[in-house]
Simulated scan of single mutants.
Amino acid sequence: MTIALDRPGATTADRELRADLVGRAAKLFPLLAGQAERSDRERLVPAENIEALAEAGLLSILQPARYGGLQTDIRTCLEVSREVARACGSTAWTTTLLNVCSWYVGLYPAQAQDDIWADDPTARVAGVLAPTASAREVDGGFVVSGRWSPASGQAHARWAIVGVLRDGGSERGMVLVPMAELTVEDTWFVTGMRGTASNTLIADEIFVPSHRYLSSADAAAGRYATPHTEEAVYRSAFVPVSALVLAAPQLGLAQAALDLVVQKAPNRAMTYTFYDNQAVAPTTQLAVAQAASLIDSAHLHAYRAAAEIDEAAAQDSYPDYDARARARMDTGVAAVHAREAIRILVSAHGAGSFAEVNPLQRIWRDSEAGSRHAIVNPEVSTEIYGKSLLGIRGDVTDLV
């Protein structure tokens, strides 16, 4: 088996653009990190963060170039979100969701894409794909009613993509709705990823034209409605992309924890020991080595999955079931390794990790919450992958 960490067809220009975008995210570190406590306390990513990300082009990386977007690839999305997460988990999660929802819009018919961006190329889209609302077919479209939660990014979006059950549950789909037609209920009272403001969206008999509907089954099988089939990134595998992007904030959070512990160790006492500081204690040395290796492993799994997704899209070849199952497994492994690295680092740093003034406690909370998103679920992903290796397919979920 050949294992690639970047798609074989990536050009020097592709990699230079990716490095440039990651560099732009790194330059925002002081602003984003400086706002992280506020984001957590106020349960909302500050508008200044979103504006700075937008000005740097970091909210258009998966938007079609036809509307002024950068139209990059999934690996670039991962690296940008990872870099943002080094500063603030909630900002990174919001960045990730806004970007992947732009990618979803790129799968829709041309008229739907025009609805979003023709008059306002800066329009942002949030979303919840779980089909927790009904769509009743009427002349020209659907009438939609229901509730969706958690709706990450909704506070900074003009549109929402939301999951529906069509005609009594005969088919699952996704519809595009203006945020102005939805009600937002303040329900996001949580321990981690507090700043994402992932509140509940409510629709009451909203009309949605038929061109703003996309079948979930068609999407999972790679049958997209966009006429722009020459645009490689919008040929990427639906479920692997939807899962993998959520691992990116975990990578950055874990790296942030490692950076903090390594930085503080030489000046931090090793209480109740004869060691002058934590850095000279073998227990700390072993802990940071183990954590760093787990973080490396998390990156390797995530980047391998991204490389396979990106290369298949570039080759216009939709990954088969087994390849998609492995991508879900890679996502779960990346999330678990990152989360375990943070657990080790918090223990090595000591009880002071949980002081409210210590960023480690927020990193830990954000990781614990974000890594448990249902589509990332490592146990489910492991079952899917194990069964696929044994030739058993399709009996766990259709989200593969």
Score class of each variant (00 low, 15 high):
Y104Q: 14
T94L: 14
V105H: 03
L129V: 12
L107M: 03
S134N: 11
L97H: 15
E137G: 04
D115A: 12
R136M: 11
G127L: 04
G106L: 01
Y104H: 15
P121V: 02
W103I: 05
Y108Q: 07
P109A: 11
A133T: 04
R136E: 15
A123Y: 00
A112I: 13
W117N: 01
D114R: 12
P121N: 01
Y108W: 15
I116N: 01
S134C: 03
V125P: 14
D120I: 06
T96Y: 10
T122K: 12
T95G: 09
P121R: 01
Y104E: 14
D115Y: 08
Y104P: 05
A123Q: 03
L98G: 07
Y104D: 14
Q113M: 12
A123P: 00
V125A: 06
V138G: 09
Q111H: 07
D114T: 13
A123L: 03
R124I: 00
D119M: 04
A118N: 10
W103Q: 02
A126K: 06
V128D: 06
L107K: 00
C101D: 06
W117F: 07
A135E: 01
T132F: 09
A110P: 15
P131A: 02
A133C: 07
V128A: 03
I116K: 01
A112L: 12
A118H: 08
S134I: 06
V125Q: 08
T95I: 10
I116P: 00
A110I: 13
V125W: 09
A135W: 02
Y108E: 08
Y108F: 15
A123E: 06
R124D: 06
T122V: 11
L97A: 07
W117V: 10
G106W: 00
G106R: 00
R136T: 14
S134Q: 13
Q113H: 05
D119Q: 09
I116D: 01
A126M: 13
L129F: 13
L98S: 10
A118W: 04
L98T: 08
D120Y: 03
A135L: 00
Y104T: 12
W93S: 05
S134G: 09
T95Q: 15
T94D: 03
T132A: 06
Q113T: 09
T122L: 11
N99I: 13
R124V: 02
D120T: 11
P121F: 03
D120H: 08
A133G: 15
V105P: 11
Q113R: 13
Y108S: 10
G106K: 02
V138F: 09
T94N: 06
T132L: 08
I116V: 15
W103M: 02
Q113K: 02
E137F: 00
E137K: 12
R124M: 14
A118Y: 04
G127E: 05
A135F: 02
G127Y: 04
D139A: 01
G106V: 03
A133N: 04
Q111D: 14
R136P: 12
A130W: 08
A110K: 15
V128Q: 10
T132W: 05
T122E: 12
A123M: 02
L107W: 01
D120R: 09
A135Y: 00
I116R: 02
P131I: 00
T122Y: 08
G106Q: 00
A130K: 09
A135P: 04
T94A: 06
D119W: 00
V125N: 08
P131N: 05
V138M: 08
R124K: 13
I116H: 02
D120E: 13
W93I: 12
